[in-house]
């Protein structure tokens, strides 16, 4: 992993036009992705994590969904300003995507081999023979046994895990610089999930691909991520290195996410659940959107949106609790205990 930034998102806002008005799905989001780095975006449904990545790929459903503001900087280009046609130069080539359900991203009536070859012929201008050879190599790369014979089979002849491998092979066909994986293992069993995560990590190591990994599973985040962004109600509320996020979380929403998963040695009768439901982004609340569900909310949370406070060089959180005048609030006991039980040693100020 190098320090070279490959993608930079600045103040991105994405909205959807609906009959009831404008839904502000992503609100002023900024982050960057380094070369060969995995950035995990965590959040609940409706938090804007998938919409953010769709905006990166130029896949917002026009004209309903649109980039309202901000920049998506890649090389000399600003994706936020490109037309759909101009985006085709990058989409599927420099930027590839893997979705949660492999069956919906594969064509059920087309042989698997043909689908892998499609990108090779289109983006890399290979002839049929070359593409065929390369496709077999890619299927072998994602460890599909007997790849040559499997080329002539259809998606329904593959298991869920094998299908996801095919999808990864297709994504890799054009040697992408950035791979966006939207819940790629959520539909899979744990043992299969582990295999897919291993494959993705190996590929990253070999090709220095940058990965944006969207998931709601904190276990998977701990496994794959170098850095983590936590999203809530269309905003990034906390961002930092994976160790900072797990061993020194600062935002009450991050505490809630950590607390709502039982530990292996969970003894308390109740899980630390986040009460209530996320806000309606048709009318985002004034102040901090998490305030109504936050048991540590301060008066100011209902009045003013907290800015990003810096915790360390790499760690930022948008909570008024980090303001110098705010009372000293520690994470709930159950979350503190679970951090203490973790293998990672963490000391404040590190």
């Amino acid at each position: 992993m190098s320090n070279e930034t490959i993608l930079e998102v600045k103040n991105l806002s994405v909205s959807f036009k609906t009959p009831n008005g404008e839904v502000q799905a992503v609100r002023d989001v900024s982050f960057s992705v380094g070369k060969g780095e995995t950035l995990a975006i965590v959040g609940e449904s409706g938090s804007g994590k998938s919409v953010t990545t769709k905006a990166l790929m130029g896949l917002l459903p026009a004209p309903k969904g649109y980039i309202k503001n901000g920049n998506i900087l890649y090389g000399d280009e600003d994706f936020a300003k490109l037309s759909d046609k101009q985006m085709t130069k990058y989409r599927g080539k420099d930027f590839a995507m893997i979705f949660q359900d492999p069956m919906t991203s594969l064509n059920p009536t087309m042989k698997v081999g043909t689908q892998v070859m499609e990108g090779l012929r289109m983006h890399r201008g290979m002839n049929k023979e070359e593409a065929k050879k390369e496709a077999v190599r890619l299927l072998e790369l994602v460890r599909i046994p007997d790849a040559k014979a499997r080329m002539d089979q259809y998606p329904h002849q593959f298991s869920g895990g094998m299908r996801q491998r095919v999808v990864i092979a297709i994504a890799l066909a054009c040697d992408p610089k950035v791979l966006i994986a939207d819940e790629p293992t959520t539909a899979l069993d744990v043992t299969i999930q582990a295999q897919i995560l291993d494959i993705m990590k190996d590929i990253q190591e070999e090709f220095e691909t940058s990965i944006i990994f969207i998931t709601h599973d904190l276990g998977v985040v701990a496994n794959v991520a170098d850095r983590v962004a936590v999203m809530y109600a269309g905003k990034i509320v906390e961002i930092g290195s994976v160790d900072e996020l797990f061993y020194n979380p600062k935002h009450p929403y991050t505490w809630g996410l950590l607390g709502s998963m039982p530990t292996v040695d969970q003894r308390e009768e109740e899980l630390f659940a986040i009460p209530g439901t996320p806000p309606d982004l048709l009318h985002p609340p004034k102040g901090d959107a998490f305030a109504p569900r936050n048991r540590y909310a301060l008066k100011i949370d209902y009045e003013e949106q907290p800015p990003m406070f810096q915790v360390s060089e790499t760690h930022y959180a948008a909570t008024w609790l980090l303001h110098e005048n705010s009372p000293d609030v520690q994470p709930p006991a159950s979350v503190q205990q679970r951090i203490e039980e973790m293998d990672g040693k963490w000391e404040a100020g590190q």
């Binding site: 904190l218 160790d243 990672g344």
Partner: peptide, 23 residues
């Protein structure tokens, strides 16, 4: 054993060293 060893834990250091058992 293999099933339990495959569950990712929300603990990055643990994840870096977790060894998976195949069945």
């Amino acid at each position: 054993k293999s099933l339990l060893s495959a569950i990712p834990q929300p603990d990055p250091v643990h994840e870096r060293t977790r060894r998976r058992l195949a069945y």
